[in-house]
Design a protein around this nucleic acid. Sequence first.
DNA 1: ATGGTAATGTTATACCATACCAAATTCATC
DNA 2: GATGAATTTGGTATGGTATAACATTACCAT
Lengths: 164, 164
Amino acid sequence: MASANRPLVTGFPGSDHDHGVCREAVLARADALCRSRGMRFTRLRRQVLELIWDEHRPVKAYELLERLRAERAGAAPPTVYRTLDFLLQEGLIHRVESLNAYVGCGDPGHLHPVQLLVCRCCAAVAELADDEVARLLRHKAGRMGFQADSAVVEVEGVCPQCSS
Amino acid sequence: MASANRPLVTGFPGSDHDHGVCREAVLARADALCRSRGMRFTRLRRQVLELIWDEHRPVKAYELLERLRAERAGAAPPTVYRTLDFLLQEGLIHRVESLNAYVGCGDPGHLHPVQLLVCRCCAAVAELADDEVARLLRHKAGRMGFQADSAVVEVEGVCPQCSS
DNA sequence: ATGGTAATGTTATACCATACCAAATTCATC
DNA sequence: GATGAATTTGGTATGGTATAACATTACCAT
Ligand SMILES: [Zn+2]
Ligand SMILES: [Zn+2]
Ligand SMILES: [Zn+2]
Ligand SMILES: [Zn+2]
């Protein structure tokens, strides 16, 4: 079982990536995190997070809705969006602004700057979570008199799998 | 008249900012740029760019549509979106992903990385256009085997006016 | 004038997200 | 175990963002 203090998934999943294991680890961590914060990791929330991790790729809200309906007939847009809001709040997923989509966080529980690498071939996403980038951005913003709170950073390009 | 080789608007407009002058300068530059590239800076395209620069702030497409209808009764969503696409293509405006809005480029004609500083109080936007940030991001991405092409960088925080 | 290309008009529709109120579930307290 | 407050979920409606598809017009070169 994965340590609670180590990132679970970083970088692009290679050929050796066992996504079944990855998925279970991330769900177990989510459960533990919610418990420790006194939040409820309900059946619905688990179902949605499972669906998001089904493919290790960003998922759109309505795609999620469609798949959720297999398990929950009455699901409607608010069902999904409310749950996404919860998962975002708890840092279990990230929103990809440039795709209007949502992706599982590979390192939930650790506060980290979010910089996403989005492959324009296969749509795979990896997280940089780089403090140096965050610091530089904050510094440069500060030089313009701007007090930076947070940042949306999404790099578009080609992932290792697709470039080979 | 502004030189064609100098950025027109950088940073947040201060109290000394004469936006009438700013607006005219940016429109004249747009006209010259389109001419030099063999593109047509039509009446519609000028109208839309004027509307975008009316407030030196990001504008939403449907807000733009509403205002455009004062001058062009039959305007519909495609009228606006097509024109926005053109202006984006020519580098005359930038899209703000985190707001679903569009903002005039303060330095059209110079290819530059786009990093936007978005004030969460007054919604004012400034451009960093910082090569060092772009390089660092590209470098860090490269270390994960990712070949970076472009990036969406939007910093949220408080602008100088609002923090004082 | 004529024909080709680019731009705009027009209608319809797809896609993304939230407001609002009702019903059910959970949890602490009695 | 019953009671009531608070959270979560159900369900309907609507608002907001963006594009598809095709008709028409304006522009430009021959
Ligand atoms: Zn995985
Ligand atoms: Zn993360
Ligand atoms: Zn101005
Ligand atoms: Zn710019």
